[in-house]
Structure formats: C-alpha cells, structure tokens
Design a protein around this nucleic acid. Structure first.
Lengths: 336, 336
DNA sequence: CGCACCACTCGAACCGGTTCGATGATGGTT
DNA sequence: AACCATCATCGAACCGGTTCGAGTGGTGCG
C-alpha cells in the first residue's frame, strides 16, 4: 500500500494525498474525506525509509550503550529505560548501538550511514574518542556525563564531586575521622571515567578540608568484588568507621561482608554515597545517599538533543544536577 | 557525500560505483581501485534510508520490550543484551520499542511503517494480541516464550513446566512433604503470562504425583513483595519446608525474610526454581536452580528470525530448552 | 465585464541508492 | 575479414515518499 495506490483510488494526485496527510497545504474538505476513507479502508501508513530519504531525517535516535557483555548497572538501565520513554514523547524511535570492544561496527554503521538524527552517548570518558568522531561527522549528539573540556555538544551530568563532598561533610559532622571511598573498577579509572575520577578528587579534597584521614580503593562492578574489597579495607585500615561509595554493583557483597564481620549498620559502621534510589532503598538498612535521578537526566538529555537537532546553530545546553542527599538509616554517629 | 559525487570524481557512472561496492557484477581492477581511492579520500558510506528504500529491507530488527516504567528483570535484561549482541553478528541494528500501556504508538509505528525487517517479541502472553497484529501485517517475527497455539512464527522458550517438575522431584527426593511455589505477580497471571501459568500447573501436577502438599502464591516483582510474601507463607502454612520460585525480583526480599525468621538455608529451609545464573550465584547461599540460558535463547531467536526473513515460506523453527538444574547449596534434606 | 486574488490541485523533480537491459570494446575462432 | 562470446560499463527506471512551481476554476471588486 503506497501513496500512489491511495491517490489512484481516491482519484487525486500523489501530492494531494501527501498534503492531505501533512497539512502543509490546504486540501478541500471533500477530497480530504475521500482520501481518509481510502486510507482507513486500506490501512495505509507511509513507508518510513521513503519518508526519511525525502525529508532528510529519520525520526530516530541512537543510544550508545557499553558492550552488552559487561552487565549494565542499575543506573545505566534506568538511563536506557528513561531515554526510550523520553524519546517516545517526541515520537522518536531509539536504536540501540553497543560500542567499545569489537562492537564498533554498529557505532560506525549508525554514525556514518545517516541512520539517525542524533546520538546519545552514555558512559563517557574524560577524553572520549567517540565524541571526536561525532563532531567530525557533525552529527548532533548529547552526552550523559561530560568530557573534560565540553565543546559543541549538550550534556547532562550529576555533580559527583559536589555530592561526594557533601557525603564527606555529613560523615565528618557525625564525628567520623577515618573514611574510605569505594570507587568503581581499576579499568574504568585507568580509562579516564569521569565520575570515578571526579568522585575521587572530590573525596580527597573534602576529607583534607575537614582534617579526616582518607583512603580510596577501586572495586570491580560485582558483588564478589565488593566482599573482597571490604575485607581488604578491614585488614589494611581497621580504624575506618565509614565508607562512601559510587559502586552500586558491589553493594550486595559489601552487605554480606559487613554481616560476616559482625558489624551493624549504622551502629558500628556508616555507609553513604551516590546510588540509584531503587538500590538505596533495597539495602538493609536503607542507605542515606544521593540518588542519581536517571529518569530526569534521560528526559533532559533527549530534550537537549531534540533541540539541538531542530536548531543546530544554537548554543548547546547542559545541566549539572545536584540531587539532595536522602537521609535514610545507614549513617550514624561514630562510637568511641 | 552521495554515490553520484563518488561516480563523478572517479569518472564512472553511478551504477558502476554501486557494483564495485556490492560485487554483484564484475568491475575491472583499475576502475575498482580508482573508486576505492575516491571513497577512501572522501569517507563515503551509503545512505541507509536510500538503500533501505531501494532494497526493500532495512537491515534492522525491532525488539519489543515491556513498558520501560516497569523495571526489567534480570532475565529480561539478559535477553535485551543477548539480542543486541546476536543481531550484531548478522550486521543488523536493533530498534527498541516499548509496548503495552500507552506505549503502543511506538509498536504501531514500527510495525506498520515497514521500519524493520522483523520483530522480536518478549514477555509473550498465552494469547497475545501483538502476535495477531504481526500476522495480519505479515511481518516476520519470533517470540521469546510461546503462545498457546503456536502458528506461523518461530519461537524459543524454556520448558518451565518440565523444569519446575524437576525441582519438585528434587525436593521430594530430599524428603520434603510440604512445598510452595512463589510465582510472578497476580497481574501477570491474570493477563495469561505463559511461564507463570505453565510453572503453576507443572508444580501442582508434579506435587500431586509425588504425594506432596502444595501451595502457590503470587508475588509482585520486587524485593519488598518477596519479604511480605514469605511472611505470609510462614503464617499460613508453617509446615512448609521448601520453596520453588521463578520470581527473580523477589529474591532479595525473600533472603531478608529468611534471615529475619532465623531460618538457615538449606538447613531449615530449601529454595530452588528457575533463575538467571547470575542471580542464583549471587544469592547466599548460591541457589540450586535451573538457569535460564538467556544469551543462548536470544541468539537462537535472532537466528530463527533471520532465517524466516530470508525464506518466508519455510516452516518456522522453534526450540524448547530444558537447561539442567545446577546443583548449588540452597537445597538440603528435610529435618525431622 | 474584466481583473486580481484565493483556494485547491496537478505534474515534475528530487532524495540516494539498486537493478536491469543495452551497448561498446576486446579478443579468439573459423 | 567476418563473426561471436565475454567483459566492463552505461543509462534509465524504480523504490515511495516530499516539495515546488505552475496551472485551474471560482469569487469579489472596481
């Protein structure tokens, strides 16, 4: 069922059908009625490829995700869900493209074949090669997370440095003197993953400012690593009474390690950090933590991108979110 | 950079460039070289929409997921990841389309606009309206899960009835006499969600066969519900000594409830079921369970679909997987 | 009555590829 | 030298939409 067939049956030209559907030029009420009848009868819907070719836009966004093999964290998942949802409000479809590892074929295909109108990058590195690639291709894009020197593209991020700083002050206020940061994995830090680096520097700066003794450890994104990591902390720095973390995947292991060590939270040990609210509430006891507002961020990212696509000349917008720390039950005064 | 520009600079016709790229007709070595040079210099890649229009296929699959608002379970996520991965091996892109609730605009857009070559449906109901819709549109599709009366489409599924039956036998062999099935949510059962219904009937049949007293409960897909659900079980049927479950999302709550009740697994209580291996291993102690081989299923689903697209006349293939129960440490003999 | 204007419709060109039939050059046979 | 097969290439048509400029007929107004 193509537009020519509709036109023939309605006894009009193809262009008239097109105008009747788009409303870009007036069409008499009677012909419009006739066309609509035929369309309703035959169940016509314009061919997306043909329309994309003619209009020069695909009404599709690409969401670039980390390679599927590495399991996505809770926050990442919320981004994906949020982006799909937000795109739907603009009547846009979402193409899922893994990147990194040997999956860059998908990324290249999407970028270079004009397959999408814009790209959403997540898991951004401080100096990310994909950003350069997209700029070179002059394809609109937005990043969730921001590069070291943001340039032409809009971005949305959580202010990790600030939030971690607040966590440290919170712990200092409760009397803690020896604290540790449980960061994301070694590899991510080495690769220049922004949140990990910004958290680390924010943590150390704030601790120094409050005169605390501070340690940082990297921890792979899985429960087993969280367990091992906490045992190492107990061994190396037994005086530590509170931890700050941005590593969601390690939480179950951390919880097991605490129980194993016979430590009660928050009586014997305090925990806080930046964590998806879903996980923070699932912890036992519920975590006092800054929730990453993934849904809001996704919506903002899509909005910024749509804006940039509509008006490529405009100055790129950005947002650095500072969600409040939700006081739950995982932090308490240091015991003497 | 379009094919005409390449042709002009290489001093050949557009068709020659096309043949040089596709290899569908011979091109002399010298002109091929010239064309390749020009392409390398200008970085040309064919426009995906134009190609799709001309070829009549989009090299894209649609993956229909439950509405993004409902959080995806671990198994569902593994499907998504697996499908993306499997599609990449065929050089296909994946369009993510939420369906259900008020998100059916996306589904309709994709189905009816010839936006994709095929569709992968997950979270299939026993009598699913989307299946009828796709059959009517004669768009190739595959289902993960199978409808009551599979017809024209290939499918892949786990044999829930059989696996649950094996779980019951396993528990009966260990001496348990009173068992309970912790199913998925009320709503899913009411909607006619296959795995929930097949698990339930398999469970009851097997229990009767072995002379066990069997109860079943529905439980929403979240930790809090798991906790409440287990407390209800203890209250209503304190004699129950073992549970079978297919509800992954409830596991953390279940675990908390067990600890809260002072029950040791497997000494005081046994747990088994059908669970993603990732979660089964993350449980404490690791769960004896049938792992849903989500990656394999996704790969099979994509392969079947690709086959069906290439050869629409062929009989649809299908696979009913029966992964072995992995013996871990969550089941033990009933104590007297 | 004639003219300008408006509302509506049509045909043709275009988007950027693929594919088919035709054509010209080349070389080998008889 | 005439002929035919083969190979490489070209031009044109097509996929199914959108968009632009150019009619066409009817109306209001001077």
């Amino acid at each position: 069922m193509n537009i020519g067939e509709i036109a023939r049956r309605a006894g009009v030209s193809r262009s008239t059908v097109s105008y009747a559907l788009s409303g870009k030029r007036p069409v008499s009420a009677t012909t419009a009625q006739r066309i609509n009848d035929v369309i309703a009868e035959l169940g016509y819907r314009p061919n997306a490829s043909a329309r994309a070719l003619a209009e020069g836009r695909t009404r599709t966004l690409s969401l670039v995700i980390p390679p599927a093999s590495r399991r996505l964290t809770d926050v990442q998942l919320s981004f994906v869900a949020g982006v799909v949802e937000a795109a739907a409000t603009h009547d846009l479809d979402v193409l899922l493209s893994p990147s990194g590892g040997d999956h860059d074929r998908s990324f290249e295909r999407v970028v270079t074949g004009r397959r999408v109108d814009g790209v959403i990058l997540m898991e951004i590195l401080l100096d990310d090669p994909r950003v350069a690639r997209l700029e070179q291709e002059s394809l609109p894009f937005v990043t969730i997370g921001h590069v070291e020197r943001p340039g032409t593209a809009p971005w949305v991020d959580v202010d990790y440095a600030e939030l971690i700083t607040r966590c440290v002050h919170h712990l200092a206020d409760l009397g803690h003197r020896d604290v540790v940061l449980i960061n994301r994995s070694d590899e991510l830090v080495a690769a220049g993953y922004g949140p990990a680096l910004r958290s680390s520097s924010g943590f150390l700066t704030a601790a120094e400012q409050r005169g605390l003794t501070a340690h940082t450890v990297c921890c792979a994104d899985e429960p087993a690593a969280g367990l091992a990591c906490f045992e190492e902390i107990r061994r190396r720095w037994p005086e530590v009474t509170a931890a700050v973390t941005i590593n969601e995947a390690a939480l179950p292991g951390l919880q097991r390690a605490l129980r194993h060590a016979g430590l009660d939270v928050p009586r014997d040990f305090s925990i806080t950090g930046v964590i998806a609210s879903r996980l923070a509430e699932g912890f036992h006891p519920p975590l006092t933590a800054a929730d990453v507002p993934a849904g809001d961020m996704a919506q903002l990212a899509v909005d910024f991108l749509v804006e940039q696509i509509a008006n490529p000349g405009a100055a790129p917008r950005n947002a650095l979110l500072q969600p409040a720390i939700a006081l739950r039950s995982s932090t308490g005064a240091r015991r003497h």
